[in-house]
Amino acid sequence: MDLLNSDECIFIPSKNSKRDLIFLHGYTSSNSFPDRVKNFFIKQHQFNIIACNSRGHGKRKNRNYENKEQVKQTVNEYTELIQERLKNGYEVNVIGNSMGASMALTLGNNIPEINKVFVIAGLNGKNMFDVPLSVKKKYEILFQKKEQDVFKPDILEAMPYNSNKCNKQNKKKYYFIHSLNDGVVPIHNMVQNMQELCLITNNEKNIIDNGYKIDTNENLLVLDTNSNIRNILSHVMPNFRNDVIQFINKNLK
Rank of each mutant, 00 (worst) to 15 (best):
46 Q>E: 15
57 H>I: 03
43 K>Y: 12
51 A>F: 07
72 K>E: 05
51 A>P: 10
68 K>V: 09
53 N>R: 05
70 Q>I: 14
57 H>C: 08
69 E>S: 12
42 I>Q: 10
63 R>S: 07
58 G>W: 05
43 K>H: 11
54 S>V: 11
57 H>M: 06
54 S>I: 05
64 N>R: 06
49 I>Q: 04
60 R>Y: 06
48 N>W: 04
61 K>Y: 14
62 N>G: 13
43 K>W: 03
74 T>Q: 10
69 E>P: 02
47 F>A: 00
69 E>W: 07
57 H>Y: 06
64 N>I: 12
60 R>P: 09
51 A>I: 02
47 F>C: 04
45 H>W: 03
59 K>N: 10
70 Q>S: 15
64 N>H: 04
43 K>D: 12
45 H>E: 07
60 R>C: 05
60 R>S: 10
54 S>P: 09
58 G>C: 00
42 I>V: 13
66 E>W: 14
66 E>V: 05
69 E>N: 11
61 K>Q: 14
62 N>E: 11
48 N>Q: 08
59 K>A: 08
61 K>C: 11
61 K>T: 14
48 N>G: 05
62 N>C: 06
44 Q>S: 14
73 Q>S: 09
67 N>Q: 00
52 C>H: 01
58 G>Y: 02
48 N>Y: 02
66 E>I: 12
58 G>K: 01
65 Y>H: 13
64 N>M: 06
63 R>V: 12
62 N>W: 11
58 G>H: 01
61 K>F: 13
56 G>K: 02
46 Q>T: 13
67 N>G: 01
49 I>N: 04
46 Q>D: 13
63 R>I: 15
50 I>H: 02
74 T>D: 13
51 A>E: 08
69 E>G: 07
42 I>N: 04
50 I>N: 02
64 N>F: 12
73 Q>V: 05
47 F>V: 03
68 K>D: 11
46 Q>I: 07
52 C>T: 02
43 K>R: 15
46 Q>M: 13
52 C>S: 05
67 N>E: 05
71 V>A: 11
53 N>D: 11
47 F>W: 03
60 R>V: 06
44 Q>W: 13
63 R>A: 06
64 N>C: 07
54 S>W: 06
42 I>S: 01
54 S>R: 10
73 Q>W: 08
65 Y>K: 12
69 E>K: 13
54 S>A: 14
46 Q>W: 08
71 V>E: 10
44 Q>P: 01
44 Q>A: 15
51 A>N: 10
65 Y>L: 14
73 Q>Y: 12
42 I>F: 10
59 K>R: 06
71 V>P: 03
53 N>M: 03
59 K>C: 00
67 N>M: 01
43 K>M: 13
50 I>F: 09
65 Y>T: 08
55 R>M: 02
58 G>M: 00
62 N>V: 07
63 R>L: 15
64 N>A: 11
42 I>T: 06
51 A>M: 04
63 R>H: 04
45 H>T: 00
